[in-house]
Design a binder for these strands. Structure first.
Length: 258
DNA sequence: ATGCCTAATGCAATTAGA
């Protein structure tokens, strides 16, 4: 069973790249972020034609998340986090698929710091941590996957000293990520590759991909009830080099069948 | 400190991304 996460940066502008990647790698379940499209603009038919059912939580222009599955239709269990302000940004969707609860998330960027956007990021993080505590207490298989907009450690940044004041690497954001992890989640990619320099995002600026000037900000976290099934994890780095590609690369995990 | 690039909106230039 392969589960992936991919920040597509515009699902309609990215559709040829997304379809090519899905057909070449055939992940079973996929969390998508930054759809940048309203619900009515979601490409349901094009995904259905290659075998993927979906649930989605869109938003015009910004944000937007979805869960795809080719192993049975995802059964949506929630959209948005408990306590989200009104109107809410579309950043969380959750569904049950094949005996696994999948939480797909797009955590706010938070720049500039300090400022209201940074405050919004920390408040959103607090709501995620509260919800994650409820989830992990249920002692069931859960995967929390998405664009966390956090580099957990200096190992996850090409030039950590340049990022210390940035909203993706600031001490209070890394501390929030650590609080989440302390609940008992497993960082799948780092567990499989404990010492490797491995990135999931490369800026469009300054030829960042070719220079390997990247960040590791897309994560798949596993609850204790599923962590023992982890056998592999990887970044589909080559996809970042395709024409008209996203600034993120897809990340995936391989699990033994439950 | 800012631009470098890209997407969406909507048709020029702005907002947002990270």
């Amino acid at each position: 069973m392969r589960i992936a996460t991919y920040n597509v940066n515009g699902i309609n502008g990215r559709l040829p790249v997304l379809l090519r990647w899905l057909e070449e790698t055939r992940p079973d379940i996929v969390c998508l972020q930054e759809l940048k499209a309203g619900d009515e603009k979601f490409p349901e038919a094009a995904l259905g034609a290659i075998g993927y059912d979906a649930v989605w939580h869109g938003q015009k222009s910004w944000n937007g998340v979805a869960i795809l599955s080719r192993v049975g239709p995802p059964v949506e269990t929630r959209r948005g986090l408990p306590g989200d302000p009104d109107p809410a940004q579309s950043r969380y969707i959750e569904a049950a698929v094949n005996g696994i609860l999948i939480g797909g998330l797009y955590l706010p960027n938070g720049n500039p710091r300090p400022g209201p956007k940074f405050d919004y990021k920390l408040a959103w993080f607090d709501r995620l941590i509260a919800h994650a505590a409820d989830l992990i207490a249920a002692d069931v298989p859960i995967v929390l996957a998405g664009d966390y907009n956090v580099m957990p450690t200096s190992q996850d940044v090409y030039k950590p000293e340049r990022w210390t004041e940035d909203a993706l690497f600031a001490p209070e954001v890394r501390a929030a990520f650590a609080r989440l992890m302390d609940q008992g989640w497993t960082d799948a990619l780092r567990t499989i590759h404990p010492d490797e320099t491995i990135y999931t995002f490369f800026d469009y600026f300054r030829n960042a991909y070719a220079r390997n000037a990247g960040l590791r900000i897309d994560h798949l976290l596993l609850s204790p009830a599923i962590a023992g099934r982890l056998v592999d994890a990887q970044v589909d780095r080559d996809v970042r080099g395709w024409e008209k590609t996203s600034d993120h690369a897809p990340v995936w995990i391989e699990l033994t069948n439950g």
